[in-house]
Design a protein around this nucleic acid. Structure first.
Lengths: 325, 325
DNA sequence: CTATCTAATGTAAGCGTTTACAAAATTGTT
DNA sequence: AACAATTTTGTAAACGCTTACATTAGATAG
């Protein structure tokens, strides 16, 4: 910058001003400096700037795994929106491991991120969340699809219980009664869904214990169905906590000669691309990845600007009906 | 850090040393300082450090869209591998727009990234690549699945022509002759695939002009098949440049009463989760997302350590055979 | 015990900016 | 033309670290 200043015959302060507050410098000198900036292809050093102004205009994103269809949707919108507001994002994949999460949190704090967004990185074991709360002592953090009480901790969540309820209601309205729910047990949001299922089944006077624990993948769905059939259960519908599980379930159902949606209806969760491409196309609960991300960004940016923001934002999912029901 | 130094009764330089080169400080004082670091929850400022050592230990990743199944696989591995080497990644989604790409490149340079990785962000119009070459003047950049000639520009690519050839060969070996290729025209790697198709068909003495331009989505595949059927063409196989297109093609084929793989075989590209979950499960060319990413990281890290590295690395895709053929 | 060498620590300059504050230039008023 | 008010520019001190170099402490040898 000193070189630019010399070339333009001004002081370094003036160069800094044309870069940051051009209106404060006389149009004539401003143009002169700008011309030189162009000619020399000058690129300002944001690190030095960050040191002075105490902000790197960067947000840290902690996620379990970007390859997850839902997470990648969320992260996409997060990134786009943040750059809209002049922030960049530092991305990490914790793989769901507390140790990794801790390490990432540390280096993100060291790298002076202005805020943190956790997408699917809050775990049930409370010990794993200690570091999140600690991070809150220095910068705001917003959780997507989780809730935690603490200084500087904000949440935007999807009412998953309600989502599953809608699915149950819809199936019941179709006259189906033997409805099963395939859950994976790991995540915090998984619990809310189960709650929704139990509540809805109870309301309709149906068996609220029709819950099968499966792993969160294709095979989980297959195994779940096989278990049901092996036990000679009557089943007229299955709701899955994940689209991929639902696809597996459909595979297994079809393989055993059952017709979808004729014999059994299937509903997934997340409304991912898998739901669209499945055949029959899968009815699925849309938990609004993009909308959640947008709210999170809005929340964090407002917070960073010192505005008053609410501790928790809840969005309601919608049921997207396709061929599988 | 000065506070820590005062508390420990040492100089600020000593504190810096226990942080960065612990072996250089006497075990006794080292422990004393470390204890205080712990007690006070000290977090070093990596921005200040970065300013001095002239490296933020950060890599910029430019991608078109993280939601893309292939890209997200690549990005996942990139991120994991880079943190293995002590780097973090700054992520961006250009949406395939040259303007966005230019803006991102700029701020990444300003933020002093140590290197750049472009995944699927090199376009055919040469004007759009000017800024990549410019970036190469200050830091190393590695392209995934693209090739560009220039200072500091490296590539790791997948031999897509060979990938499509394998697909053709396999179909021909099954006795299929009326093989069509569905291409999307936008990307640079799309061209290589078409070349591979043309070459392979020619080798087998088949019609190398069986190429249909379709959009890169479900509907593209549907439309492509509809066009073929409307033209009363005989078709015994279709290869698609993308899994999603192949899924669309299968939908349309099944809808018109054709059996897969009996009447027509279908092959996709990328071996994404869509291929696994499709029914029938889709045969697909695996272009090795993880392997490519690993090579890219290796390349860039070596380059940053001043080692000699090769300008271009080529990996060979493999054909993953499933039910659709 | 002194001289020499090595290990451990400290001092201070510098990394590339921003920004109070001071100084100089310009404008407007009388 | 002199002065005040205002705009524009410059000077220099931070920002929180690292590191070359200087200094001191400790070890080894004669």
């Amino acid at each position: 910058m000193q070189d630019i200043a010399d070339l333009a015959g001004v002081s370094i302060a003036t160069v800094s001003r044309v870069l940051n507050q051009p209106e404060k410098v006389k149009p004539e000198t401003r143009r002169k400096v700008q011309r030189i900036l162009e000619q020399t292809n000058f690129v300002a050093n944001a690190v030095a700037r960050g040191l002075v102004v105490n902000s790197m205009k960067t947000i840290g994103i902690l996620t379990v795994d970007v390859r997850d269809l839902y997470f990648s949707k969320v992260i996409y919108t997060l990134e786009r929106q943040f750059t809209e507001y002049g922030y960049n994002v530092l991305l990490s994949n914790t793989g769901g491991e507390v140790g990794e999460k801790k390490k990432y949190l540390r280096v993100m704090l060291e790298k002076q991120v202005d805020g943190l967004i956790l997408v699917g990185s809050v775990f049930k074991e409370p010990t794993g969340n200690k570091h999140i709360l600690e991070a809150g002592h220095s910068i705001p953090v917003v959780l997507i699809n989780s809730y935690l009480e603490g200084e500087n901790i904000y949440s935007v969540v999807c009412d998953d219980a309600h989502g599953v309820k809608q699915a149950v209601n819809y199936l019941v309205a179709q006259g189906r009664k033997d409805i099963y729910y395939f859950t994976d047990t790991k995540s915090a949001s998984g619990l809310a869904k189960v709650d929704g299922f139990v509540a809805a089944m109870r309301e309709h006077g149906l068996n609220e214990r029709n819950i099968i624990e499966v792993s969160r993948n294709l095979d989980g769905g297959v195994k779940g169905v096989q278990q049901l059939l092996a036990e000679k259960r009557k089943v007229s519908a299955v709701i899955c906590g994940e689209d991929i599980t639902a696809i597996g379930a459909m595979k297994a159902l079809t393989a055993s000669g059952l017709k979808i949606p004729g014999d059994v209806g299937v509903i997934g969760y997340n409304n991912s691309i898998l739901a669209e491409t499945a055949s029959p196309a899968l009815t699925s609960v849309d938990n609004l990845a993009a909308a959640m991300a947008r709210q999170a960004v809005e929340l964090l940016v407002n917070r960073l600007q010192g505005k008053e923001v609410s501790r928790k934002i809840v969005l309601s999912p919608t049921l997207v009906i396709r061929e599988s029901t």
